[in-house]
Simulated assay, not measured.
Amino acid sequence: MRHLVLFFLTIVLATRIEAASVDEAISVVRTASPTTAASDELREAWKTLAHAPAIAIPAILRGMNDSNPAVENWIRTAVDQVAQQTLDSGGELPKAGLIELLSDTSAAPRARRTAYELLENIDADKAHELLAGMVDDPSLEMRYDAIAAGIESAKAAEGDDAVAKYRMLLESARNLEQIQTCKKALEEAGEKVDLATHMGFVTAWRVIGIFDNRDKAGFDVAYPPEEEIEFSATYDGKESEATWMEGAVTTDDDLGNVDLNDKIGPEKGAVVYAFAEIDMPGAQAAQVRYASPNGTKLWVNGKEVANNEVYHAGGGVDQYVADVPLLKGKNTLLLKVCQNEQTEAWAQDWSFQLRVCEPLGGGLEFDNLTSQN
C-alpha cells in the first residue's frame, strides 16, 4: 500500500513540475517581439511547449491573450507540433478543453481559431455545431466562417425560410462580400435593401471649394473651414471665390461614394471640404471609417482624428479607420479632400465615402441632419 501511495505521489509531483515548466515557458515565449531577434532562452521555452503533453494545449493557446503577432506565431507553431505528435502516436487531443476555449469569447481570436481547427480535426460535427452559433461572434474570423456556413444553408432553403435566414445573416455579416451576397439574395426574393443605411454611410454633405493644392502645398494649409463652418461665408479660393455649394450634395450609391468630379468638375491641384452633421440616439464608442484615392484629413466634433497625405494608392471601403467617441445628439464630420496634379488616366478619381459604425464594423443608426439643410 505504501508503495502504491508513493507511486501516485510521484505522478502528481511530476505533473505539477511539468505544469510549472509549461507555465514558465509560456511566460518566456510571451516576451517575443516582432522587432527583436529570438534569444536562446526563447528557443528553449518554445521547445518546452512543443514537447508538452496534449492536455496542455488549451493552456498554451491562452498564452496568446493580450499578445502580439510574434507571440501568436511562436505559440501556434508549438501547439501544431504537440498536436501532430499526439495524433501520429495514436494519442487524443483534449476535446473538452478545446470546446471550452472555443466557447470563451474573451480568449484571443487566433487561439480560438486554432482550437476550432483542432476540434474540427477530431470531431467535425461538434466543431460545425458550435460554429453555427457564432454568426454574432466578436472574432471577425470566426464570424466570417459562421456566416459562410449560414449562407450555404440559406441557399439550400426555400421561400420565407430562405428570406429569414438571409435577413438574419445580413444583420450579422461584417465582410463586404458576404453583405453583398445577402443583399443580392434578398432583392432577388423581392425585398429592398438600403445598403448605404445598413452600413452606416453618410450620404448627404455640404461641400465647399475650390482651394489651392498646386504642388500639393494645400494639404497642410488650414483653410477657413478648418476654423469655422459658416455656410454664408465667402473665402479666397484657388482662382476665384470659394463658397459652400447651395444645399446638400447627396449620393445614392450603395456604398456612399461621392464623386467630386461629377459634383464639382475634374479639378486638379485642388482642395474641397465636405461637412456633415449626424444625430446619434445615444453616446457611444464608435469608429468613423472612410476611403478616398486622394489626400485627406478628417475632423470629428472639431478634433482631427485622421491625416493621410496619400494620392492614388488604391484602397477600398474602410481604407482608413478612426476610433471616436460620439455624443448623444449632434456630431460633426469635416473631411478635407485634396486632389493632386497627376495627368495619368488612373489618377483622375476624386472622391470619398465615409461611414459610421461600431468597432466591429456594423453600421450605426443616425439621422443625417445635413440632408435637411
Rank of each mutant, 00 (worst) to 15 (best):
D323I: 01
G329T: 13
E309V: 14
G302H: 02
K328E: 15
Y290Q: 03
T296I: 13
L333C: 10
K297M: 12
G329D: 14
K297A: 13
Y290S: 00
K330C: 06
G302N: 01
A313V: 00
A313R: 11
N308S: 14
T296G: 02
D323R: 13
N308V: 05
N331W: 02
S292C: 08
V321Q: 07
V324F: 03
Y290V: 05
Q339W: 05
G314V: 11
V310F: 10
E304W: 00
N331Y: 01
T296Q: 03
K328R: 12
K297G: 13
N307K: 14
R289H: 08
N307C: 12
Q319G: 04
L327P: 04
V317R: 09
G295A: 15
L334R: 13
N294H: 06
K336Q: 15
L334S: 14
N294K: 08
L327A: 15
L334M: 14
L327H: 10
C338T: 11
E304M: 15
V337G: 02
V321P: 01
A306L: 10
T296V: 15
N307Y: 15
T332F: 11
Y320T: 11
G316P: 02
T332H: 09
L326A: 10
H312P: 03
K328C: 00
N301R: 09
V337Y: 08
R289D: 01
G329W: 11
G315L: 08
E304H: 05
C338P: 07
K328S: 12
K336T: 04
G295F: 11
L298K: 00
D323V: 04
K336L: 04
A291I: 01
Y290C: 07
A291Q: 11
Y290A: 05
D323K: 14
N294V: 07
C338Y: 03
N307S: 15
G316E: 06
H312I: 11
